[in-house]
Design a protein around this nucleic acid. Sequence first.
DNA 1: CATGATTACTCAGCAGGCTGAACGATTGTG
DNA 2: CACAATCGTTCAGCCTGCTGAGTAATCATG
Lengths: 155, 155
Amino acid sequence: MADDDAQVPDRMGDPAHWATGRLLSTAARLVEHAWDAHLATWGLNHASFAVLWMVERGPLPQRSLATSASVQDQTMSRIVERLQRLGYVERARGTDDRRQVLVSITAEGRRVRGLAQDERLAEGLVTDAVPDPAALRRDLLALVRQLSPRRGGPA
Amino acid sequence: MADDDAQVPDRMGDPAHWATGRLLSTAARLVEHAWDAHLATWGLNHASFAVLWMVERGPLPQRSLATSASVQDQTMSRIVERLQRLGYVERARGTDDRRQVLVSITAEGRRVRGLAQDERLAEGLVTDAVPDPAALRRDLLALVRQLSPRRGGPA
DNA sequence: CATGATTACTCAGCAGGCTGAACGATTGTG
DNA sequence: CACAATCGTTCAGCCTGCTGAGTAATCATG
């Protein structure tokens, strides 16, 4: 068996032969990795940076953060816990609905968020490598819209 | 503060305003999730399925699997360990180079891989949602090629 | 042949994802 | 007011991904 291929045949060593889903996952992971390397300077990563971005305009319920980010509540809970440990956000019980946990950014969190922000780097990671960034955005957006669990969709 | 927006302002609730990297990560995770739901029938997921696909043609060193999949050796080690636990692959020390661990597929592994294969489902997840799947593939391929750590690049 | 560098892999530990189960606060209903 | 249903969050546990550190085999060099 395997009489005409090297140890790692082109068929699998070359991404050109991968299924599109695998291509998508790998590309995402590579971009994430590069972006995380930048954010690590302030103890942040792609997930926690996105949270800081969301709460910058004002306190939000943790559940809202999870929904917007398309992750489970449990996942968001740990991300916020870590941000709190770093001193970048605070958590307080909601006043009108005391079930909620309101997440608000601290002064230090706002400062760090501003420092970490680097549109040029972030977008450049993708746009510098891709022939048609606008088309890519359009396709990714279509994917996210299509696959996001729509609450109250076609009953 | 926050005098003119609802609890979750459009600015962050609507993916159209996200950075491209975040769009990419989210799209990848949503596609992965749907594909994993299918593979879970046989105890597989996107990572382990890819390994079965790679070793189907013959035994390969674990390191080669890691490199092809663009993950760390440690990550691949645990994926293979789990596949071994499921009885889908076997591990054997290399004969010529006893540092290597050669991963080979079992009969059961081959059978399950065949059952789990579903090109229509896998590709359809992406192509059914996207205007121009070919352009998406081209852009993702460019990203992977650009960001993959090239060993022996410009010295 | 002995020594040191390199290679292949494993172990320990952290973080982001997931599911399932529990818990407290709120809301609805009789 | 008591009680059940619901909502928001947390806890436990699993998998994938990462880094850092360690071990064993191989290779290169003197």
